[in-house]
Design a protein around this nucleic acid. Sequence first.
DNA 1: GGGTTCTTGATTATCTTTTCCCAAGAACCC
DNA 2: GGGTTCTTGGGAAAAGATAATCAAGAACCC
Lengths: 124, 124
Amino acid sequence: MHRDTRQRRAIRRALEEAGHPLSPQELLDLAQEEVKSLGIATVYRNIRALQDDGWLETVELPGEPPRYEVAGKGHHHHFHCRDCDRVFEVEGCPGNIQAITPDGFKLERHEFVLYGLCDSCTGS
Amino acid sequence: MHRDTRQRRAIRRALEEAGHPLSPQELLDLAQEEVKSLGIATVYRNIRALQDDGWLETVELPGEPPRYEVAGKGHHHHFHCRDCDRVFEVEGCPGNIQAITPDGFKLERHEFVLYGLCDSCTGS
DNA sequence: GGGTTCTTGATTATCTTTTCCCAAGAACCC
DNA sequence: GGGTTCTTGGGAAAAGATAATCAAGAACCC
């Protein structure tokens, strides 16, 4: 069904090597290091294809277009650096979430987003 | 500087009475109950004006266009109902957030979003 | 009450992100 | 190797949200 193309390999490799969620544009820039003719339409097409395969997951952050990361990483959250605009993974999950859920509401899932400066951007 | 118009009064009242964040379209629908000729452009204009006055705050949720709520409510988070698509306020804040921040990262703020069914939509 | 200035409503424009289109090129299979 | 089918690249187009334009209407001030 899906063919093994240079473009698709470059896109997959960029996502694996980045190790953190990438926007379509970031993904294009990284994958173009391997296949410089790569176009943005191909990035979007492959994002969809890899999502359909279950290989890729969408990371939505408030007020931002979606980013994408390799699927199957288990429960985690994200840290958004306000300086370099990159998104990092955060292990673990804070305290008792059910406790703050209003009475009568059914909690099904949650998202947690940290903001600040990443280790590369703390100018100290 | 700012004049006291029927439209602006209706928009403010809708936000106050709703008691939870509203999208521009939700705001239009509610304020039209009072001023039926109200147009969407006026809603957007007044959102900006009320933000500039510090009366209104933006609520950004993952993968959603912004909603707006009356400013000055103190720290809180939000619950997004997947059925009616409305957003509710959540009091309190879970456990130790600093504890899960990666080493070397500077935590400045955080957002927390709960998902599930609100009390009106739990069909039980 | 009347003039000045701000605001409104409707439409059009803009902006950003994502998808479509299609001819050219590449992968796969026998 | 050659044919079939899928994929690509680039530009045009769609989609959704927000802003600009402008004539008409409303608020404010004396």
